[in-house]
Computed example of a mutant assay.
Amino acid sequence: MYLDHIAIVFMEPCTTGHGRIKIRAQLARNIDDLLPYLNAVIKTANYNPKAPSFSYKTGNHIITVQGDTLSATQMENESDAYEFLEQFQIIVNDTADNKAHITPLNKQRERLKPFELYRYLPKTNCKSCGEATCMAFATKLVDGSQKLDRCTLLKEQENSLNYQHLAFILKESGYDLH
């Protein structure tokens, strides 16, 4: 097993989330050698090979890994933190086990920008997605807190090409469409 345990060494309230916590955890080993492989596996990651550091967002959590240290924000509670760490350990171990079949990505990805997505949105600011404007919706798509299917106008016949294009962009960038 590549990573046999992760221990929480620090926990405190998040300054940005009401009632949420942030943690710092000690990994059983330095995983810098695995970061390019994780970068290939976790499509929404931001990998800096010069540091080396690795970060990504999953749900509301922002995860950062450097060497043998992991920090995570916006955890609901201690139980949520332990559950997340178990899932992270599984991802790390699966990635390590499948290294031979993964092409490492040794560079930073270009990050999606809201305006790139906004170009293909209806621009009606209809609020059917739950956001005040189409630009706000595009911003939430980029940060992963909104899903493309929430825009009802994109499902109409005249917008189907834009929907397909947005779906392609998001999928290629590693976003979950549903």
Score class of each variant (00 low, 15 high):
129 C>V: 02
133 T>R: 02
144 G>N: 06
79 S>I: 11
152 T>S: 14
146 Q>S: 11
74 Q>K: 10
84 F>A: 01
95 T>W: 06
114 P>L: 05
74 Q>L: 13
64 T>L: 10
70 L>E: 07
130 G>I: 09
91 I>T: 09
120 Y>N: 04
103 T>C: 15
79 S>M: 13
80 D>P: 01
74 Q>Y: 15
75 M>R: 04
105 L>I: 05
117 L>T: 01
89 Q>L: 08
136 A>H: 03
134 C>M: 00
71 S>K: 08
119 R>E: 15
111 R>K: 12
96 A>M: 07
93 N>H: 08
131 E>T: 07
119 R>H: 13
101 H>W: 07
95 T>R: 03
80 D>S: 00
142 V>I: 02
69 T>E: 14
116 E>R: 13
102 I>T: 10
84 F>I: 05
84 F>R: 05
109 R>C: 06
130 G>V: 00
105 L>M: 06
99 K>D: 06
121 L>P: 00
69 T>Y: 14
124 T>E: 14
77 N>V: 02
149 D>S: 13
148 L>V: 05
133 T>C: 09
144 G>R: 07
148 L>Q: 02
116 E>L: 15
136 A>I: 01
119 R>V: 14
100 A>M: 12
129 C>H: 03
123 K>H: 15
108 Q>G: 10
133 T>M: 08
64 T>H: 11
133 T>P: 10
131 E>N: 14
97 D>R: 14
111 R>G: 13
81 A>C: 12
116 E>N: 12
113 K>H: 13
109 R>S: 00
80 D>A: 04
64 T>A: 10
91 I>Q: 07
124 T>C: 06
96 A>K: 04
70 L>I: 10
141 L>E: 07
102 I>P: 03
110 E>L: 09
98 N>T: 03
64 T>Q: 12
66 Q>I: 05
95 T>S: 06
71 S>W: 03
129 C>G: 05
129 C>M: 10
77 N>E: 05
138 A>H: 03
149 D>H: 15
86 E>F: 15
151 C>S: 00
99 K>T: 06
117 L>V: 03
75 M>K: 02
85 L>H: 06
82 Y>H: 11
109 R>L: 08
150 R>E: 04
73 T>N: 01
